[in-house]
Design a binder for these strands. Structure first.
Lengths: 200, 200
DNA sequence: ATTAATAGCATACGCTCGTTCGCTTATGAT
DNA sequence: ATCATAAGCGAACGAGCGTATGCTATTAAT
């Protein structure tokens, strides 16, 4: 009954499944992740893959949560060490742009991808996506509010509007990269974000 | 051999299938449109549904082209009657916002939806989506260029940047409506678009 | 050494998918 | 009236889907 020092074998296996699922979902969508192909890729049986989760919906939820953690690691964690306010907003934007052009998610922004996929399908997955999306908007708006209070953003600025616009720009960058293959998407995104933040 | 005055029976049937497919794809995605469910919905056999197209990929292409036509009808056609330049850009943005909050596509922006779904899957559908996306960016950039020449936008404005930002805002509005259910998404989008166009 | 729990495999289930094939109507021209 | 073409149905196919059921190793505790 004592807590383990190392993770159990099952936990390690589960983690490997989730990681493969994130990779697959990033490329082709969360619904296109099938248990059979995951099993083939991991050299396991279908029962062994779905076992730790029970149902595919649970696997999808675990996959999304893992992806949300990776986004947080890439974008929020580095920025959280910067002083709150405009500086942190700058750090968030820069980390965001690097994240979108990086290889954490080979198929592009996980949240945008899954949001488009599930926004018309009620269920626990959709709810999870919506919650993360709202949370992230609030995080940005909070920093914008601090920036306003510190006099780094115009007094009449609406924090939620800043969050909305930065989020929209990130979606635009993602589509420019993933669909149209534009090399200068990151530069365009940076310019747009800096304008929203009243920089230069 | 003489051309018909009225459409053939097959053409009428085909149009009905495509319309049902657009509706379904808007809600759940282009890949989630299945021949069996279309048949059930239209009270036809599966063979009758797929017959006019041959393969599902052809049906997907026809579905996307139909949706592109609806977008054009909603957004471009009304604006095309306005004088080129900034006024037309305003008209496009307003029609765009109405389109996004309207019921042409019950599941939201068709292009955003299918772009996210197919940007990682090479093929003719992806190419068609990419082409339309690039074309629309060019249409906006062209109007921005006219606006600059007419002195209605700052001389150092980059037309492609204007197109990028307006498109990004539209994506943001769509996600705010479809995923987060925000009632004021249209207002936020309008404010952001007007700022990009340098209006009040 | 024996036992109990864990981890994962092999198999099979009912279902839906896209596609194919032959047949039956209905239409329209001669 | 006859006949050829058009239009779509019914049935079947092989494949892949998510899930459930036993069973077999492996591990860990007694």
């Amino acid at each position: 009954m004592s807590p383990r020092v190392s993770a159990s074998a099952a936990a390690v296996t589960r983690e490997g499944i989730v990681r493969a699922s994130v990779d697959q979902a990033s490329r082709e969508g969360l619904e296109a992740v099938t248990i059979g192909r995951l099993a083939e890729r991991l050299d396991m049986s279908k029962a062994g893959v779905i076992g730790p989760f029970g149902t595919k919906e649970e696997l999808q939820l675990a996959t999304f949560q893992e992806a949300a953690g990776l986004f947080r690691r890439d974008v929020w964690d580095p920025a959280s060490e910067v002083e709150p306010g405009l500086s942190r907003l700058e750090a968030i934007c820069e980390a965001w742009l690097v994240h979108l052009s990086g290889d954490t998610f080979p198929g592009g922004c996980f949240l945008t991808q899954t949001a488009a996929e599930f926004d018309g399908r009620p269920g626990r997955v959709r709810t999870a996506i919506k919650d993360i999306s709202r949370l992230w908007e609030k995080v940005i708006a909070r920093e914008a509010k601090v920036a306003i209070e510190q006099g780094d953003l115009a007094e009449n600025t609406d924090p939620a509007q800043v969050a909305f616009e930065l989020d929209a720009i990130a979606q635009g960058v993602n589509q420019a990269i993933q669909l149209r293959g534009e090399k200068d998407a990151t530069d365009r995104g940076r310019r747009a974000m800096r304008r929203v933040l009243g920089l230069t």
